[in-house]
């Protein structure tokens, strides 16, 4: 409808009709869209297709070696059983990170909505979100300062108990989870906050005046109403976490072997691109399955 108005409007104007000048609207629409979608095609869509094709090759095509198509890269989980363990590790790290983020983030969002207002709330929200938009690598690196032996955590402990040993837990899976929670908590707080802030205060007052205790309000009113925010926050945490590789590398050291680091290795160390491609696509399938499952909730979350 708007298109018709756009082209008809000048004809109604006082300067008279300008016949023969106006192109059909689809021409300009296409011209406006072409650069963006052309760019995305070259930078994202064609690469993904190429990687899909690569995942069926038997070896990285080098020089004159013949190109052989095979399904063996997708059998990697059967042929190399240690990959199953690594896959489970990745899923567990993703699960714990998401769960801890959800609990901490939901409570923080409730606290924001119920205990603060006006300028204070705005300030707190900006302070919470600010780290999210800074370099993730640097934030992960900063945890090594805290968690290493004789790091900040140990210094704090030794102030209280000078003879205590080290409680630094750098290069463990706990360290990886702590670093990841730190990275994605602001996002979870934001999605829960957006869901909670629309709740009418009258609902909670009504519940309270009818004798509901705080835990009843929390679990029977706030939690169900925040569910869309919690779910979209959980999806948007879990997906990048199972694809992460620098957090496990830096915080996990030798125990930090995940799907992410295995894929990275195929491209930077082992030079087995077809295996890397098939593992990437397996990961992508998991990601797409998660998005498909929660697409309804996610769509409501983004358009609200």
């Amino acid at each position: 409808m708007q298109n018709d108005q756009l082209t008809l409007a000048p004809a109604r104007g006082p300067s008279g009709p300008r016949k023969g000048r106006a192109l059909p609207p689809w021409v300009s629409t296409t011209a406006l869209l072409m650069p963006t979608y052309g760019w995305l095609t070259i930078a994202v869509f064609l690469p993904l297709l190429t990687m899909f094709a690569f995942s069926f090759l038997s070896a990285t095509p080098m020089g004159k070696a013949p190109i052989i198509f095979t399904l063996k890269q997708y059998r990697a989980f059967i042929d190399q059983p240690y990959l199953v363990g690594i896959g489970i590790t990745s899923l567990l790290i993703g699960f714990w990170t998401t769960l801890i983020c959800a609990v901490l983030g939901f409570l923080a969002a409730v606290a924001l909505v119920r205990s603060t207002f006006g300028k204070t709330r705005e300030m707190l929200l900006i302070l919470i979100l600010l780290p999210f938009w800074t370099n993730g690598l640097v934030r992960v690196f900063s945890w090594t300062m805290v968690l290493r032996e004789n790091g900040f955590l140990d210094s704090l402990l030794h102030m209280v108990a000078p003879d205590a040993g080290s409680i630094g837990f750098l290069y463990t899976r706990y360290a990886i989870v702590v670093g990841l929670v730190h990275g994605y908590l602001p996002y979870m707080i934001l999605t829960c906050y957006i869901a909670l802030v629309t709740i009418d205060d009258a609902i909670i007052e009504a519940a309270a005046s009818l004798g509901a205790r705080w835990w009843t309000i929390l679990f029977k009113i706030l939690l169900p109403l925040a569910a869309p925010g919690l779910i979209s926050g959980a999806v948007l945490t879990f997906v990048p976490v199972i694809g992460s590789f620098m957090e496990p590398r830096i915080l996990g050291g030798r125990v930090g072997v995940t799907m992410g680091t295995v894929i990275e290795d195929q491209f930077t160390q082992a030079f087995n691109w077809p295996l890397g491609a098939s593992l990437s696509f397996t990961l992508l399938a998991v990601v797409l399955a998660i998005f498909a499952t929660f697409s309804g909730v996610l769509r409501r979350g983004t358009t609200a």
């Binding site: 690469p47 694809g243 992460s244 691109w273 890397g276």
Partner: peptide, 16 residues
């Protein structure tokens, strides 16, 4: 470009 983990997008770009 936003939703797929960058590890996947990045390695796909490298291959292409």
């Amino acid at each position: 470009p936003i939703a797929i983990p960058w590890l996947i997008t990045g390695t796909a770009m490298l291959i292409f």
